[in-house]
Nucleic acid binder design. Structure first.
Lengths: 215, 215
DNA sequence: TATTTGAATATTGTATACAAAATACTGTGT
DNA sequence: ACACAGTATTTTGTATACAATATTCAAATA
């Protein structure tokens, strides 16, 4: 039995974890009673959590039929990258215009432990990568931007499918974004952030086209 | 008593209407029992509707205290415009790349009834304006983009406060966006869309700064 | 054997019940 | 009159109950 100020929050977190780790598989129907029983709660807070997950595009609901773990196809992954490209571009621009030192130090800290000339631990780097992009958004302090950044949940899908570029390839791009922000040139910062995500998107497109993996 | 395949959908629509028309005023607490009784439903589907509205930033919930109609301050309005600028820019780019004739005709239809040399009906134009921007997003067919476009709900807030530019000022900009899309030049289309929204945002900033209206 | 029909079962959506927490009220003391 | 404590009322969050719909399974038919 989960204890908390509100039950739906921990239920939400647990369900999200189960989805991202594929304990609940894409396309799988979420049997409310079964999960609720496993977590020791009733369906009421469970539904609340499921609805929140639906608003974050991690599950889909079909009226009178139930909730299903969202399945992402190639086009949907690419569409999310299209949105991220311009949103993170805007974020980088705003941060560059601001010239805040603590912002810079926080962004730097994400990658200070990595050196392209040595080996880079994939798992650790993937986490740093995720943190960096999330931080870029958070630091702007734009509530609407934060709210809609849930679209990056799908990132884990990309990670799982091994569709990422290598750390050696992206580390320099990450530092280029940070340097552009430091320079105070908003347009340069936006361009750097956009170029980085556009390249990832293009990699995604070619990889999936060549492998013929269309779901 | 509302009848429908699911009760929460019409409840959601009715609540949204009440919020956008200020039948429920900004900052006002939403007394669940009272509204539920008025609509002839129980709190269960009502909560579902409220949660959906929360995910769309039209209401805010404070745990153990309830739901409140969201109050937008200047900075939040501007922040939404920041997001819209880049998102609609991206949308315009994609549409330009596509060169689809039916897309063009749909966009044109929004403003075909207006002539800057004659008088333009404010209400009618405001509706056409909203339709146009929504259409720009819809036509791209990007699910994530559609999902996050709820941020434009606060547009009505701007309308209510009379912070808009005149039709005479924006009609030409709207046609410029359409023409850029027709030309097939993605960068030009993106630039036109961004310039349009950036100008509206700047108008918003100066108006609110000068009037000293900071909430 | 494949298909259809219908009953049995399971699942959803809504209503109601109830405990815990927040709010409003009332009377007391200063 | 004002502040405060303690009680009553209201409101939320969760659990349970139940009707309506969807799904499953098995027997009957072609």
């Amino acid at each position: 039995m989960i204890e908390h100020s509100g039950l739906s929050t921990p239920i939400y977190q647990e369900l999200k974890r189960m989805i991202l780790t594929q304990e609940l598989k894409p396309g799988e129907k979420i049997l409310q009673e079964k999960i609720a029983e496993k977590l020791g709660v009733s369906r009421t807070p469970m539904m609340k959590a499921l609805q929140l997950l639906e608003s974050e595009m991690l599950v889909e609901s079909i009226p009178r039929r139930g909730f299903y773990v969202k399945v992402f196809n190639v086009q949907e992954l690419i569409d999310v990258y299209d949105c991220r490209e311009v949103l993170e571009g805007m974020a980088a621009r705003r941060l560059a215009e601001r010239q805040d030192l603590s912002t810079l130090s926080k962004l730097e800290k994400c990658f200070s432990g990595f050196d392209a000339s040595e080996g880079i631990d994939q798992k650790k780097y993937a986490r740093a990568d995720g943190d960096f992009h999330k931080l870029l958004i958070d630091l702007v302090g734009n509530q609407a931007l934060n709210k809609i950044y849930f679209i990056s949940n799908i990132y884990s899908e990309v990670v799982r499918k091994g569709l990422l570029r290598t750390p050696e390839e992206t580390l320099a791009e990450h530092w280029a974004i940070i340097e552009a922000i430091r320079s105070g040139d908003g347009s340069a910062a936006e361009a750097a952030a956009r170029a980085h995500i556009a390249r990832s998107r293009d990699t995604l497109m070619t990889q999936l086209n060549s492998s013929g993996n269309h779901d």
